[in-house]
């Protein structure tokens, strides 16, 4: 009989045999996120003469199931930048928490020095505070580090705001840490459906610098409509953010307007139609 306290209350080995500990080990290698589960679809954004417009719908899909219909995928940062997330929603939430911490640290860091911005531009964020270009660099390093660890954050991210020269800034990072910039950017389906439309209005930086805010918002709303027509994992409720020197204007409950499904009548040859 085993009288050691460690054995108290346990099935006796001499009666039941040694405990089969193999059930406690899952076996095999550590499984990090190897595929996305709950996902958000496209994020689109376009630069205009004094800022950037970004939009993403409010849907989080579970495969083909429209699982969560009120998920906000655009996140303002320090009210000077906006981050838009496509891809895995749990990884987005992880990054959002991480960015919250970063924003709080930043706020403390610059609390003591009252807006030390340059005299000529009173709306510029305090010097030294993270701008969109800095934030994009930070996120790209984070994403690249995670891919090097074979534990990627399964997102494609757009970052909008201003760079150190106070010019509109828009850039992308993906799960492998690949980064790029362009006058207009789109992730997921948006890269096929929305990007060609946006490039018609802002093919070059010079074109984007001529675009007004109203035009840019109109183009983005039009693209969201095209995406809702053709992307099966999309929703007609979406968030839209406009970043200017005055800050971030974020509307998280927009509804697609003036939809026209007349074209659907002309589509034949699918489903149970007999004609």
């Amino acid at each position: 009989m085993d009288h050691r306290p460690q054995a108290w209350g346990r099935p006796r080995d001499d009666v039941y045999g040694a405990y089969d500990a193999s059930y406690l080990q899952s076996g095999g290698p550590k499984t990090a996120t190897q595929s996305p589960i709950v996902t958000g679809t496209s994020v689109i954004a376009i630069k205009f003469k004094d800022g950037v417009v970004m939009a993403a719908d409010n849907l989080a899909s579970y495969g083909s199931l429209a699982r969560f219909t009120d998920v906000k995928r655009l996140r303002p940062f320090l009210s000077t930048s906006v981050v838009g997330f496509g891809g895995d929603v749990s990884d987005m939430q992880f990054l959002t928490r991480h960015l919250n911490e970063l924003a709080i640290d930043e706020a403390y860091e610059h609390e003591s020095s009252p807006t030390s911005s340059s005299e000529d531009d009173p709306n510029a964020p305090p010097a030294g505070q993270l701008n969109a270009a800095n934030l994009h660099k930070y996120l790209s390093k984070l994403m690249y580090r995670r891919r090097n660890d074979f534990d990627p954050l399964w997102n494609q991210i757009l970052v909008a705001g201003f760079d150190s020269a106070s010019a509109p800034f828009l850039a992308s990072v993906d799960l492998r840490g690949t980064t790029f910039t362009s006058p207009s950017l789109a992730t997921g389906f948006g890269a096929m459906l929305a990007q060609p439309i946006m490039r018609r209005y802002a093919a070059t930086e010079a074109d984007a610098a001529r675009l007004t805010r109203e035009e840019a918002v109109k183009v983005v709303k039009e693209c969201m409509k095209v995406l809702f027509y053709r992307d099966a994992r999309s929703l007609d409720r979406y968030s839209i953010a406009v970043v200017t020197k005055d800050g971030v204007e974020l509307s998280e409950d927009e509804q697609l307007e003036r939809q026209s499904w007349a074209f659907a009548e002309r589509i034949k040859g699918y489903g149970t139609q007999t004609v």
């Binding site: 076996g27 190897q34 595929s35 891919r147 990627p152 492998r176 690949t178």
Partner: peptide, 18 residues
Amino acid sequence: VNAPEGAREHRFDPYTDN
């Protein structure tokens, strides 16, 4: 032996060609 029946192995590919 250790792979469960019908287990689909989806590994993350850290590379792409740009």
